[in-house]
């Protein structure tokens, strides 16, 4: 059978291309027909050249390394380009159709044909599974990268005054997030030599005992470094939960608003904010 297929390589490719181009799910917006042809030709070559009657039952055979490598590359790049799983899967499934069609055109015994179709089918099914696996892996990589980006974006440290840092936390605070928050905050404290850090939790949807523990850890670490940490943005309902859950935050300086925290910070740095007298004089002069 391998021999037959080897002789009909170009026919297989043509038939496969026809199948692919006829498919309603063809994404000529994402990949040009020319590129698709190049990809398909490479794969047909790699598969047919390496296929023999011995390895047809073993998709793991090292003979197919080239095939799996090609398939892996194609499905990862498709995952990134935004192909749907169905579109990616159809790539290899239409090849199976083409191969079986060619096999059927060969004059042979029904039983033999059935056996061979079955073998070929199994082999291609394995490659299909591989395609999906790599496709999903490619997608996972995209997701992982985005998760990292989100964590980075969502924890900015702002220098609000000389010696005062503020960090608004938006979204749920889990252990992984707390790590990032802590690291960023402490690093920035060292860089700027700030002695006060304000953690604003107005954007945190809920505070349970675990989140409270994370906050306490952050405050303790800040203190170990020699800076002070104020928690601001505690909404009334959060104050209620904290007390009902019996969480002790009495060791921490807490303020209802960022403004309150800033005021406290100014006070402890012995800074004063005054309304300037100049403006009053200006008004008086106009009269």
């Amino acid at each position: 059978m391998a021999h037959t297929l080897n002789n009909k390589k170009s026919e297989i490719l043509e038939l496969w291309m026809k199948n692919q181009l006829a498919d309603s799910g063809l994404r000529d917006d994402l990949i040009s027909n020319k590129d698709l042809r190049v990809q398909s030709e490479e794969l047909v070559n790699a598969l047919i050249t390496n296929l023999n009657d011995n390895n047809i039952n073993n998709s793991q055979s090292p003979d197919f390394d080239k095939v799996t490598e090609l398939l892996g590359g194609i499905s990862i790049s498709r995952a990134r380009q935004g192909f749907s799983p169905r579109e990616t899967g159809n790539f290899i499934l239409t090849l199976k159709e083409a191969l079986l069609e060619i096999l059927r055109q060969e004059p042979s015994d029904v039983n033999v044909l059935f056996e061979e179709s079955l073998k070929l089918s199994r082999l291609l099914d394995n490659f299909t599974i591989l395609t999906f696996e790599t496709f999903i892996k490619g997608r996972e990589e995209v997701i992982l990268r985005q998760t990292d980006e989100i964590t980075d974006i969502s924890t900015p440290v702002i220098k609000v005054w000389d010696g005062i840092l503020a960090m608004p936390i938006i979204g749920t605070l889990d252990s992984a997030r707390t790590q990032v928050v802590m690291e960023n905050l402490l690093q920035k404290i060292v860089e700027t030599g700030s002695s006060i850090a304000i953690l604003d939790i107005s954007g945190v949807p809920a505070v349970d005992s675990l989140v409270a523990q994370h906050l306490l850890k952050t405050v303790s670490a800040t203190r170990l470094m020699g800076a002070d940490c104020i928690i601001s943005g505690i909404r009334p309902e959060i104050a209620q939960t904290i007390v009902h859950l019996g969480i002790d935050l009495s060791q921490i300086i807490t303020k209802a608003s960022l403004a309150g925290a800033l005021q406290y910070a100014f006070k402890s740095l012995r800074l004063e904010v005054k309304r300037s007298a100049l403006e009053v004089n200006g008004i008086a002069n106009i009269q």
């Binding site: 402490l186 690093q187 850890k217 303790s220 670490a221 470094m225």
Partner: peptide, 20 residues
């Protein structure tokens, strides 16, 4: 006064439960 503790050290001490 202990000065200049590294952030990584501070995080580790807190996790370890060492209040210094």
């Amino acid at each position: 006064v202990v000065v200049g503790m590294q952030p990584a050290v501070a995080i580790t001490l807190v996790e370890l439960g060492l209040p210094l």
